[in-house]
């Protein structure tokens, strides 16, 4: 919990790098639709498309964190 406090202190300058694993059939499609509808969202996410989030191996998540990613988003 003390970590949360530390984080909120410099939340203003926090510009997280987020890695997304998007399911081809749903979340990736939704992200495309968001574009078609011109929804605006912060440019912090980079996407890896997979055919299904079933593909998501926990090693991918761990490796991402090891490499310094701030957050991992999965959508499926």
């Amino acid at each position: 919990m003390s970590q949360t406090n530390e984080m909120s202190n410099d939340i203003k300058g926090f510009d997280p790098k987020i890695l997304g694993f998007f399911c081809h059939w749903c979340c990736y499609a939704a992200a495309d639709s968001a574009g078609v509808a011109r929804y605006q969202y912060p440019p912090n996410i980079r996407t890896i498309r997979v055919m299904c989030t079933g593909r998501l191996d926990f090693r991918f998540v761990l490796e991402a964190f090891r490499c310094g990613v701030d957050g991992v988003f999965t959508g499926g």
Binding site: G35, R38, Y41, T47
Partner: peptide, 25 residues
């Protein structure tokens, strides 16, 4: 690399960040 639907269109007001994201993608 999806630099339109998931980049240019959704970061229309942040050209620099969108360009950086495109490079990353």
């Amino acid at each position: 690399a999806n630099v339109r639907d998931q980049c240019a269109w959704v970061h229309a007001h942040e050209p620099e960040a969108a360009t950086q994201k495109s490079k990353d993608l």
